[in-house]
Design a protein around this nucleic acid. Sequence first.
DNA 1: CACTTGACCTGTCCGC
DNA 2: TGCGGACAGGTCAAGT
Length: 318
Amino acid sequence: MPELPEVETVRSGLARLLPNKIVSTVNFDWPKGFPNSQNDINAFLIGAHIVGIRRRAKVLLIDLSTDYTIVCHLKMTGQLVFVAKKPVLSSKFSVLGSAITKNPGPRTQNNEAGEHFGAGHPSDSLVGVLPDKTTRVIIEFTDKSKLYFNDQRKFGWMRLMPTIQVPELDFFKKVGPEPLTDEFTSKVFVHRLQRKKNSTIKAAILDQTVLAGVGNIYADESLWGAKIHPATKVIDVPVSKLKVLHYEIIFVLKLSIEKGGSTNKNYVNAEGKKGSYMEFARVFRRENLPCPNCGTTIIKIRVAGRGTHVCPTCQKHN
DNA sequence: CACTTGACCTGTCCGC
DNA sequence: TGCGGACAGGTCAAGT
């Protein structure tokens, strides 16, 4: 799912769409993914104005005028989709606090109901009529626009908490530097990797305590760019190559943000549209295709428990 | 402590 | 066509 570029694309979309909206109703029935009590929702979310949208690592933070924040992780298949127009099928959803009625209808690519704000060509969109069977939470605003939290696999979560307590979450206390800020120098990167010297380089850059935001796609892409085999132990990678890797991580993350992220399967932005980084991917999901650098057939192997794409010619162990 | 593996879920794809 | 197993972008807890 969403890695840093995808979450950042959702963040920038929501930052254009949500500020000054006022929450009118919240429809949720997902104790595991959204564990807040109805009392909390009534006290700190209903009637709140949206004041800003932030991102840290792969986590989205929606700040409210009540000094509370909606903290949201999309994990593998989560989507936050804003819809300006009231979908016709919204009557299938019951009122505040009661169970969400499943909509058994198939997803459609083009429809008059549930038109997405700013939607372009239908092929840009992955979501059909909302709510659908993956919809877990609906936040409705006073102007009748809605924010849908969809998540097929239910690994994602959102919770409402006091803004001041957000940095105290265990994850935020441990997470590493943001790769697209000045604090992420090659010196910092190499230094933080020293802690992981006996793990594979791929496992190390996937570790969110080393740096924030890299997932499986950009791990494979950046390691290809730096010509490092993903299964190489950190201690065996020359510092000169780690410095190239530092550059490549920043390069692929920035490029992907420009392309609106990667839609491998489920990912869509805040307007329900796909991202196009996959058209530029050099190795990820390109097994059996030629390496763009040398033409060797790209292979798929397993490293750090994850599917891993490698050019066996360009990326050799040292 | 460092590091790896399985679990969390639902859906899809592939081989038999 | 049906069924079982492997796999899918992330993170944690529990294991070695």
